[in-house]
């Protein structure tokens, strides 16, 4: 075992979860009011019981190379990531966001302003505002360009956990998968891919508010499939909920461009990051209505029911390919282009 932090410890898979558990969660003192969701739940955020409501708090750091990519930029990513984590707890009434930036000496002022404009635009879209912030500058070479760290606070009457799946529940995804990760990967590894690969980065709080407003109790669990993709999010949900999940490959919404690019570099779209999507565990009798509601919203046009929760094989993810069934294992590290 390595005694150093490797890239895999930030890739969203098992290594990252183990690091968080061992280093941050174990032995952490936690005294929250009864009915709260704290650090040990390792959910998308914490929910602190305040009277008859919950105060939901989440924190997020953002580094992306390049800072601007088709479909978005680090600013939009920062706001969306934070708002989406709040929404995944059921908290779509955002009280405020914070924004701390660490900038490298020599960074272009013009670029910084573009990032800030983008954050403002995304905040308006999310009906949230940045209420406080912090700025630090580090020497050249001590940090790579720009790091944005955000926190979000929201109120809700009902907390939706990532651990609430029941056997028989259907799994719904709010749109196409793999768009963000594939768009960024195609730039990062200089793959020379041209075409309509664009990130899906978007704040989906309003989409979630629409579904929860209309179908409330039928939504048993939520999680956003960011780093590590749909596979990693579902592994975590299934493991915490004590169910197995069977996915139907033919139902997975994947854009042709993403499918092709993923095939060229030998990566399964199930492991590729999304930044504007949610996975919902929905009571079976409500699934058609939930999908129909999602499709009414511009960010949910390609929503689809993609799988079912089962009693067997708790914590595992199985894919029905149409030929047969096979396991979908947990991600081991950062997905990399492969040749074989």
């Amino acid at each position: 075992m390595s005694d150093r932090i490797l890239l895999k410890h930030g890739a969203g898979g098992r290594a990252m979860r183990a690091l968080i558990e061992q280093t941050f969660v174990q032995g952490a003192p936690g005294e929250l009011p009864p009915g709260s969701v704290g650090l040990d739940a390792m959910d998308d955020g914490a929910a602190v019981r305040l009277g008859d409501r919950w105060l939901v708090v989440t924190a997020d750091s953002h580094v992306v190379s390049p800072l601007f990519f088709p479909g978005g930029d680090i600013g939009r990513l920062a706001v969306s990531g934070t708002v989406n984590d709040l929404a995944m707890m059921g908290a779509t009434e955002v009280v405020g966001l914070t924004c701390a930036v660490i900038v490298e000496e020599g960074f272009s002022r013009d670029t910084l302003e573009r990032v800030v404009q983008s954050m403002r635009a995304a905040s308006r879209e999310a009906r949230a505002s940045i209420v406080t912030g912090d700025t630090k500058v580090m020497g050249r070479g001590e940090i790579d360009g720009l790091v944005i760290s955000t926190a979000g606070v929201a109120l809700t009457d009902r907390v939706v956990r990532d651990a609430g799946l029941h056997p028989g529940d259907r799994i719904v995804v709010t749109g196409t998968i793999g768009d963000h990760g594939m768009a960024v990967m195609s730039l990062r590894h200089d793959l020379g891919l041209e075409g309509d690969l664009a990130s899906d980065v978007a704040p989906i709080g309003q989409l979630v508010a629409l579904v929860l407003g209309r179908h409330g109790d039928a939504v048993h669990a939520m999680k956003d499939p960011t780093r590590g993709g749909v596979a990693s999010a579902l592994h975590e949900m299934a493991g915490k909920s004590g169910v197995g999940v069977v996915l139907d490959e033919a139902s997975l919404p994947v854009r042709d461009e993403v499918r092709a690019a993923a095939e060229l570099v030998g990566i399964d779209p199930l492991y590729i990051a999304n930044e504007g999507k949610a996975i919902l565990g929905v009571r079976a009798d409500a699934v058609d209505a939930v999908v129909a509601t999602l499709r009414e919203h511009p960010l949910g046009r390609r929503a689809a029911a993609i799988g079912t929760c089962v009693v067997e094989r708790q914590g595992t993810l199985v894919l029905d390919t149409g030929f047969g069934r096979r396991l979908v294992a947990e991600l081991e590290g950062e997905p990399l282009p492969r040749i074989c």
Partner: peptide, 8 residues
């Protein structure tokens, strides 16, 4: 062209 993605 690979299914909508172009590459040299």
């Amino acid at each position: 062209d690979f299914w909508g993605v172009r590459k040299t």
